[in-house]
């Protein structure tokens, strides 16, 4: 099966190793992975800020780039949710595009969801050893129903112990532009998350969205915590092969 990897703009710019980890996982699962090289952004920043027109333009661009793939997979619940849930809404009044975009939306998955529910993958090659806690990123959880999938994958790794933290499903305060516009509020929300992470007493905090991870890591370090690792689920599952 031909799987298009949408690495997301944030992973592309900030943490390419998450993109490579995703690539390795998909290949390990037997997928033929294509990475359209002109991909940029799914349009979510504009969409969530009220700029619907820009979001539509970027949605059409993504549609052109990925339409020939059997599946589209993104290492992000938020970007996958944008495509799966919100793209059809963008074109609700445009029947010709709506049909195409809906077909693409139905074939779009967040990485952990895809690995568990589509390719039934259970042989994560990663070698993480230690305790970790999983933060349920909002869009993945509430738009795509991603909760058990990453935990199921982590449970297949012999060295990993998952410890649930309090309020794992509460927002970390990232929210894209919200984190800058309402910095103080966003910082408090991140701080609450950090307290729960620290109370769980784990070696690493893991999530499926880089936005949350940057927010959490930024707050943990500012709090003076330089020990808790902050990792994307793909990094844990795939292990690190010198992608830095």
């Amino acid at each position: 099966m031909r799987v298009g990897l949408f690495v997301t703009c944030l992973v592309d710019a900030m943490r390419p190793r998450i993109g490579f980890a995703s690539l390795r996982l998909l290949e390990a699962a037997g997928c033929q992975v294509v990475v359209p090289e002109n991909q940029t952004c799914c349009g979510q920043p504009g969409y969530n800020s009220g700029d619907r027109e820009t979001a539509k333009t970027l949605a059409l661009k993504l549609l052109d780039e990925f339409e020939t793939c059997d599946y589209v997979v993104a290492p992000s619940g938020s970007c996958a949710g944008m495509i799966r849930v919100h793209y059809p809404d963008l074109f609700r009044d445009d029947p010709t595009v709506l049909n195409r975009i809906s077909l693409l939306a139905q074939r779009t998955y967040e990485l952990a969801d895809f690995l568990v529910n589509v390719v039934k993958f259970d042989a994560a090659p990663g070698h993480f050893a230690g305790t970790l806690t999983y933060h349920d990123s909002c869009s993945g959880l509430r738009e795509l129903g991603i909760r058990d999938q990453p935990r199921a994958l982590l449970a297949t790794m012999p060295g990993v112990t998952v410890k649930e933290m309090a309020e794992a499903t509460t927002c970390c305060g990232f929210g894209g532009a919200f984190a800058v516009k309402f910095g103080e509020l966003s910082t408090r929300m991140a701080d609450n998350k950090c307290r729960h992470i620290e109370a769980a007493g784990v070696d690493a905090i893991v999530a499926g969205d880089l936005g949350c991870l940057l927010n959490i890591e930024g707050r943990l370090r500012r709090r003076g915590n330089h020990t808790t690792q902050v990792l994307h689920i793909a990094e844990v599952l795939a292990g690190n092969e010198g992608d830095d």
């Binding site: 690495v7 943490r15 910095g183 890591e217 930024g218 370090r221 500012r222």
Partner: peptide, 19 residues
């Protein structure tokens, strides 16, 4: 708004597409 209360982890240095 971000950095008043948080650090920003720096990017790895090269983009995924470059690599």
């Amino acid at each position: 708004g971000w950095t008043a209360g948080r650090d920003m982890p720096a990017p790895q240095g090269k983009t995924f597409r470059e690599l």
